[in-house]
Amino acid sequence: DFCHIPVSIIKRSAGRSAVAAAAYRSGTKLTNEWDGMTHDYTRKGGIVHAEIMLPAHAPPEFADRSILWNSVEQIEKARDSQLAREIEAALPRELSGEQQLALVRAYVKDNFVDKGMCADFAIHDKGTGNPHVHIMLTLRPLKENGQWGAKCRKAYDLDENGQRIPDGKGGWKNHREDTTDWNDKGNVEIWRAAWAAYTNRALESAGRPERIDHRSYKRQGIDKIPSVHLGPAASQMEKRGIRTDKGEVNRQIAADNKLLKEIKARITRLYRWSKAETEKPQTQQSSLTALWEAQQQLDAPRTRTGKIRALQESAALFSFLQANGIQSMQQLHEKIADMNIRYYDLRGKIVKAE
């Protein structure tokens, strides 16, 4: 199945704080020393596990959630500062709670903590069939002495001889560059692929046949419209037999997917059949007689119902040939090939619309 793994930045310019986010994710009460606001989420349910994982050179006191995120808030002085990165991922329901926790720990350690980031993760599961994990990550590197390092540094522009270039104002042309590669755009794809790999390994170790794929349905080559995420409220209502708007959309999508699958299967069968017929000697495909005979040989029905259906399909085929002016197998093959192309064009429009 396709898994959606959103990656986002917690930033002050959006009115957010790292302390508030950490309190909500962990279901705890924390006070943000930067603005003096207290965030109490101790009554929030569904928090299965919350844990902080630190790189070896991080100050031991960062194991305290309040100290860690208040330290982040204090080091960021600007009102539009980026405070933390957050990754959210669905956990396989096929795994036990212990197996889910082991999966998250291994993933977080290998992909983030070992790279120097401090990680604060929380597993949520309200019993509504949607277990998931929130992973908050620090953005600044930690120096070996445990102090926060700079996110970026000034780098001078150099000419072809490796010399600094004057800016005409008594200084040198320069630009800012990140001190780490954590913000590289390619990382999102790497982290998503890693989550799929770690999850599939955990499922395999548990003896489960299910597998996930971080790529979209389109990139996987699957002709399927992604369904709408119901969320806990709609999921509970649907379980009680109450039909919701989101549920209705998903039912329509499921019906559309079934129809699309049937259409695609029929086009594929026709395409392969017509292609095989066009490759036969020319004398066998010069008229509709050969086409009709070949069609009659396809899965000749034995039951009365099957024969009636075959007669209906033959009538439909005859109408199709007449309407499109098809006089040979070659013309039919070209027409079906065009239908195949238009099918994929339509699929793209449907997915975009959904």
Rank of each mutant, 00 (worst) to 15 (best):
Q330D: 04
Q331T: 07
E313M: 10
F320W: 03
N324E: 12
A310N: 13
Q322H: 14
A323G: 06
K307W: 14
F320A: 11
E313D: 13
T305F: 10
Q322W: 08
I326R: 02
Q312V: 05
E334H: 03
L332C: 09
A316V: 10
Q312W: 11
I336G: 08
E334M: 00
L321Q: 02
Q327G: 10
I326M: 07
F318W: 00
A316Q: 02
M329Q: 05
R304P: 08
T305A: 15
G325D: 06
K335M: 05
Q330V: 12
K335Y: 09
T305L: 13
Q327R: 02
L321C: 00
L317A: 02
R304N: 11
A323C: 01
A316S: 01
M329I: 10
I336E: 01
I308K: 08
A310C: 02
A323Y: 03
K335W: 04
A315W: 10
H333N: 00
T303Y: 06
S319G: 05
A323M: 08
N324F: 05
R304T: 15
E313G: 01
M329V: 10
H333E: 05
R304Q: 11
T303E: 04
E313Q: 07
T303P: 07
Q327F: 03
A310Q: 13
F318H: 07
Q330H: 00
Q322E: 11
